[in-house]
Amino acid sequence: MAETSVESVSAQANQGVKGNFRWVVRHPIWAFVVIIFLFFSLMTDTFFSLGNFENILVQTSTLGLIALGMTIVMINGNIDLSVGAVVALAASLTVDIMGWPMFESWGNWQILPAVAAGLASGVLLGALNGLIVWKTGVDAFIVTLGAMLGVRGLVFVYTGEQSFFAMNFAYSDFGASRFLGLPTLAWIFLVFTLLIHILLSRTVHGSNTYAVGDNREAAVNAGIRVGPHMMVNFMIVGFFAALAGITLSTQMGASTPNLGRDYELWVITATVLGGTKLTGGAGNIIGTFGGVLAIGILRNGMNLMQVPAFYVLVTLGVILIAVLFLDKQLNRKGDGELRI
């Protein structure tokens, strides 16, 4: 009883300082984002400028897009390790198909089938991952680990270990284009962030995503078709991995078979920083967005301070553990916990 009354009291106090404090407790990553933002603003002359903020958004958009999908899959109680390989596959397919002779006369329209094929490859591989997890009951970690190795192999087979260059300049210009005062890639990231936030927080599919990750048996008993549901979410993360591959290749005007290496680790880092639990059932896009920004700001800021890249890795590793420790301290359940 005490707990319910605390809940309702705090719900009322949602506006004002207490509400803000609770918001930060729920999303400690944003406190961290503010701290590093202030830190780099004070420590460098170049960090605090609109142009640099745009940079950060564009630089993080690739990771960020995948992290949106990863958040859904992880709330679902699954994980997708194959996203990095899908980035390379979608990028290679798109850049290659664009140059196929059959589309030569299409002008800039040749981009359309190429992008469609790239995105479809991601969605299909996601569907395949989901189908295997659904039908075999093998853990998503294992299934997508296999997919990660296998798809990367396919990319090397398909490309013959070669990089592809986009001959269509409209394609490579897109990566640097602007729309309504912001880089187009930043827009893509922001719009999808909003969409996925709405999907998770407002729709039935979103609610079911939490339910399946929270208590799979309860979800089955409640009549949620858990298998197909999980498959849809794998398709969503596949879509975002492919989209990220395509936006990345527009930035470079090319694709390489090694594109997206280690991306799965960065994406999971960003998602977990944002408060999504590996065990499923908890997490949200506000947190993930914060996690993505935190990584983006740290990389960008330390780069501006000319910190060698390897120290950036060390710092990120330390921060990952520190933030999760803080999260556990702030949100611990009290005396229900056992000493270990």
């Binding site: 407002r202 729709t203 039935v204 599919h205 979103g206 609610s207 079911n208 339910a211 309860a218 979800a219 409640a222 009549g223 949620i224």
Partner: peptide
């Protein structure tokens, strides 16, 4: 759970 009432667009 499993039968959340929805609006037209699939929102809860």
């Amino acid at each position: 759970l499993g039968e959340l009432p929805r609006t037209r667009w699939g929102f809860v």
